[in-house]
Simulated assay, not measured.
Amino acid sequence: MALLLTMWRKIGCLKSDVEKGGWRYDVCAPIERLEGKTLGIFGLGRIGTAVAKRAAAFGLRVIAADPALTFMEAKERGAELVTPAMVLSSSDIITNHMDANETNEDLFGAAAFAAMTRRPLFLNCARGWSVDEAALVEALDEGLIRGAGLDVLKDENPDLEGHPLLGRDNVILTPHAAFYSETSIEALHRISAKNLAYCLAGRPQEAFKVVNKL
C-alpha cells in the first residue's frame, strides 16, 4: 500500500518540486482520485488478502486472480474472483503477490503488458521470478503502463550499475524491504527459534512455514 499511495499520488514529484522552491499543488498533474479505481491482485494469499482489505478502505474496487480459490473464498477475503485476463484488462493498478513456482515464471511478459489496456500502475512486492524485466522496461518506454513500484528484481543481489529501471520518474525500486520493520525482525528470530525447538523435539509438523524440508 505504501508503494501504491506514493506512486498514485506522485509524492516523489511533489517533493522534488517543493525542494526546488515550488509550491503548486497541480505541478504533477494529472493526479486522479483513487476512490472508484480498480485494483487487480494476482495471488490472494495472506499478503494479497491484507492488501485487499486495506485497499477497500480507500474506496477501491478489488478484483483478483488465484487458481486456488473459489469465488466465495475470494469474496470472503475482500475481492471479486476473475480470470487473469480480466485482471490485466480491467485494472487501474495491478499488484503481484504470488509465490514463485513453475507456472508463473515471467508471467508478466510482453503479452501481459500489452493486455493491460487501462495503462495501469504495476506493483511487485512478491518475487522477481514472475516479471520479464526486459518486457517491463519496454512497457514503460512505450507507455503501456503508467509506472512501476518494485520491491524485488529477478536477481536477489542485482548489479544496479546502469540498470535500465533506475533513473525513471515513474519507477520506484526498493531493496526487498516491504517486510521490514524492527517488529518483523524480532518475529523472525522468535519464529526461527520455535521452529528449531519443534524440529529437535521431533515435531516438525508444528513448525511455521518450513521452506527447505530436511
Rank of each mutant, 00 (worst) to 15 (best):
residue 6 T to H: 09
residue 6 T to V: 08
residue 8 W to K: 04
residue 9 R to M: 09
residue 9 R to H: 10
residue 12 G to A: 05
residue 12 G to T: 01
residue 12 G to S: 04
residue 12 G to N: 08
residue 14 L to M: 12
residue 17 D to L: 00
residue 20 K to W: 00
residue 20 K to R: 14
residue 21 G to N: 05
residue 22 G to Y: 01
residue 23 W to A: 12
residue 24 R to G: 02
residue 25 Y to P: 02
residue 26 D to A: 13
residue 26 D to W: 10
residue 26 D to E: 13
residue 28 C to D: 07
residue 28 C to P: 08
residue 29 A to K: 03
residue 34 L to V: 13
residue 35 E to C: 15
residue 36 G to P: 05
residue 38 T to D: 11
residue 38 T to I: 14
residue 40 G to M: 01
residue 41 I to G: 05
residue 42 F to L: 10
residue 44 L to G: 08
residue 44 L to K: 06
residue 46 R to W: 14
residue 51 V to S: 02
residue 51 V to I: 12
residue 53 K to R: 10
residue 56 A to D: 03
residue 57 A to W: 04
residue 57 A to R: 06
residue 58 F to C: 07
residue 59 G to A: 12
residue 62 V to I: 09
residue 68 A to E: 09
residue 69 L to Q: 02
residue 70 T to L: 03
residue 71 F to I: 11
residue 77 R to C: 11
residue 77 R to D: 10
residue 84 P to S: 14
residue 84 P to K: 13
residue 85 A to E: 15
residue 86 M to Y: 07
residue 86 M to C: 07
residue 86 M to G: 05
residue 88 L to G: 03
residue 89 S to V: 10
residue 90 S to M: 15
residue 90 S to T: 14
residue 90 S to H: 14
residue 93 I to M: 13
residue 93 I to S: 12
residue 93 I to K: 09
residue 95 T to V: 08
residue 99 D to E: 15
residue 99 D to P: 12
residue 100 A to I: 06
residue 101 N to E: 14
residue 102 E to Q: 05
residue 103 T to S: 15
residue 104 N to W: 08
residue 104 N to T: 11
residue 107 L to K: 10
residue 107 L to C: 08
residue 109 G to S: 11
residue 112 A to T: 01
residue 117 T to R: 07
residue 117 T to E: 07
residue 118 R to I: 03
residue 118 R to C: 06
residue 120 P to C: 01
residue 123 L to A: 03
residue 126 A to D: 07
residue 129 W to C: 05
residue 134 A to S: 13
residue 134 A to Y: 03
residue 136 L to S: 00
residue 137 V to M: 04
residue 137 V to S: 04
residue 138 E to I: 00
residue 139 A to Q: 01
residue 140 L to A: 09
residue 141 D to H: 01
residue 145 I to F: 04
residue 146 R to N: 02
residue 153 L to G: 05
residue 153 L to V: 05
residue 154 K to I: 06
residue 161 E to N: 13
residue 164 P to M: 04
residue 165 L to R: 05
residue 167 G to Y: 12
residue 167 G to W: 12
residue 173 L to E: 03
residue 179 F to K: 06
residue 179 F to Q: 06
residue 181 S to P: 10
residue 181 S to Y: 13
residue 181 S to Q: 11
residue 182 E to S: 06
residue 182 E to C: 07
residue 185 I to H: 10
residue 186 E to N: 04
residue 187 A to M: 15
residue 189 H to S: 11
residue 191 I to P: 11
residue 191 I to E: 14
residue 191 I to N: 08
residue 191 I to C: 09
residue 192 S to D: 06
residue 193 A to M: 10
residue 194 K to F: 14
residue 195 N to L: 05
residue 198 Y to H: 15
residue 198 Y to G: 09
residue 199 C to Y: 13
residue 204 P to M: 03
residue 204 P to A: 05
residue 205 Q to R: 11
residue 206 E to V: 11
residue 206 E to S: 14
residue 211 V to C: 10
residue 211 V to P: 09
residue 212 N to A: 14
